[in-house]
């Protein structure tokens, strides 16, 4: 009995999906960059740059939370480069043996105060926090720990109405007007454009969030991976990061 045509077509396709990508594609070289979500815009710009400079190279970007990415890298997830939004996650990858070589600090991201574009509660600083609905990240995530430390330093005693699970949630609450004020990274505030107004937080520059980058042990092409690192640290790369709101070392 002949097998149904659908089965004959689907089985090879399915097998193809199960195998590593390279087995079924053409012969372009590929490097995969695992990066903290806050790097989305700047790394996408750098991706084009890198692909223009390297013929036949395809950069795949995978964004997520730093901790999750570090754990995935330790679990052997395919990847050539890891870029984290804090030191702790990078330590995790170093200790887990997936990050090889010395991790490089390539940018910092300071916490800023953001308010909705129309600023309904008329907040410009900590003095205006009383009776306002403001939000920050939870103590369990880096942006929250940073906010707590800055609030203590500035002797702010008001409590937020909500401790969001990540910095994007804080930004969303501000951009939609669901909260009067919140703390996000400068890069997030820049990315939000006209939806929010940004104010510097006193002392934030002294406690910037460091970004680290390292090549991964499982990289199939460590030279190419190193070239990505070089691009990020180059003047060109640093300029892209600064435009996205980051500070550079």
């Amino acid at each position: 009995m002949p097998r149904p045509i659908l089965t004959r077509l689907l089985v090879p396709a399915a097998v193809c999906l199960l195998l590593p990508l390279s087995a079924c594609g053409d012969d372009t070289t590929e490097i995969k960059v695992l990066a903290a979500a806050s790097l989305t815009e700047s790394f996408q710009t750098l991706e084009k740059q890198f692909e223009d400079d390297h013929d036949g190279v395809d950069v795949k970007l995978s964004f997520g939370s730093s901790t999750t990415l570090a754990e995935q890298a330790n679990d052997g997830a395919p990847g050539d480069v890891l870029a984290t939004a804090d030191e702790k996650s990078m330590d995790l990858a170093v200790d887990g043996g997936s990050a090889t070589g010395e991790p490089t600090k390539f940018a910092t991201n300071a916490l800023v105060l953001v308010v909705p574009a129309d600023n309904p509660a008329k907040i410009t600083g900590f003095d205006d926090f009383a009776d306002s609905d403001w939000v920050r990240c939870d103590d369990e995530v880096p942006c929250g720990r940073l906010a707590v430390s800055l609030l203590e330093e500035n002797e702010v005693e008001q409590e937020p109405v909500s401790r969001e699970v990540d910095v994007k949630s804080v930004l969303a609450k501000i951009a939609s007007g669901e909260a009067d004020a919140g703390f996000v990274y400068a890069s997030d505030a820049v990315a939000a454009g006209d939806d929010v107004k940004m104010f510097p937080v006193p002392g934030a520059d002294e406690q910037p969030n460091p970004y680290f980058i390292a090549t991964l042990d499982q990289s199939g092409d460590s030279d190419l991976a190193q070239e990505w690192l070089d691009l990020v640290s180059s003047d060109e790369g640093q300029k892209v990061l600064e435009e996205a709101g980051f500070s550079t070392p």
């Binding site: 939000v135 995530v141 109405v161 909500s162 969001e164 699970v165």
Partner: peptide, 26 residues
């Protein structure tokens, strides 16, 4: 819940949110 009501211990923080937040740090 987290999108609509937010997350604050004692007022809006339920078990699933607490668990989700702990996954990153602990």
């Amino acid at each position: 819940t987290i999108t609509f009501a937010g997350n604050y211990p004692g007022t809006t923080q339920t078990m699933p949110t607490l668990i989700y937040l702990s996954i990153n740090s602990h």
